[in-house]
């Protein structure tokens, strides 16, 4: 693995992106790697712009902020516009199917993340776990087992099954690409 694998998850407040970042970082640690997670948020608890960042590495992580992510997840148009130009060479942008595509030299993968959560799982709230599944399968930066363990550690009691189901659905979405 390269020195720093950077992931930026962006969307609006209330989409659970901070928890998604925490789960990816914790999964990396369970895999025996190093990871940091940070976030930036506005004053709103719901709505507004939200982002969560994860750095995964096999060595010490000094500078803790993401600069040029390999993966950008954008769940809203606003988030895509804000972050689309700040991506590593050969970086990939993952957008929800509700987000309008834009001109960019980077590869865009569009997937029905929110729709899968809403229609297949039955709760749009778990779109964050669908996204974690997509990123896990697409990048292999973390193991599926690690993520499953992290989900069980971190999601509210009683919602474990729902979240694991959403995670698996996300993995399936990525497998079909």
């Amino acid at each position: 693995m390269e020195e720093r694998f950077e992931i930026r998850l962006s969307g609006s407040g209330g989409q659970g992106l901070i928890l998604a970042g925490i789960i990816l970082a914790e999964a990396a640690i369970l895999d025996g790697k190093n990871a940091v997670q940070s976030q930036s948020y506005g004053p709103e608890a719901r709505g507004g712009a939200s982002r969560s960042e994860v750095i995964i590495s096999n060595t010490d992580i000094d500078y803790p902020k993401v600069t040029k992510p390999k993966i950008l997840l954008a769940l809203t148009d606003e988030a895509l516009h804000k972050f689309k130009d700040n991506i590593a060479d050969e970086g990939v942008i993952i957008i929800d199917s509700s987000v309008k595509k834009v001109d960019t030299p980077f590869k865009i993968i569009q997937l029905p993340i929110i729709e899968t959560a809403r229609n297949k799982i039955g709760k749009s709230m778990v779109a964050n776990m669908v996204a974690v599944g997509v990123i896990t399968e697409l990048t292999k930066a973390v193991s599926r087992e690690g993520v499953e363990k992290a989900i069980l550690n971190r999601v509210p009691k009683g919602t474990e099954e729902l979240n694991i189901k959403a995670f698996n659905a996300g993995c399936n979405l990525a497998e079909q690409i």
């Binding site: 925490i22 970082a25 640690i29 990871a35 940091v36 997670q37 940070s38 803790p64």
Partner: peptide
């Protein structure tokens, strides 16, 4: 704020 909110191994 960075150190306060950062999650780290």
């Amino acid at each position: 704020e960075v150190v306060g909110h950062l999650r780290e191994k």
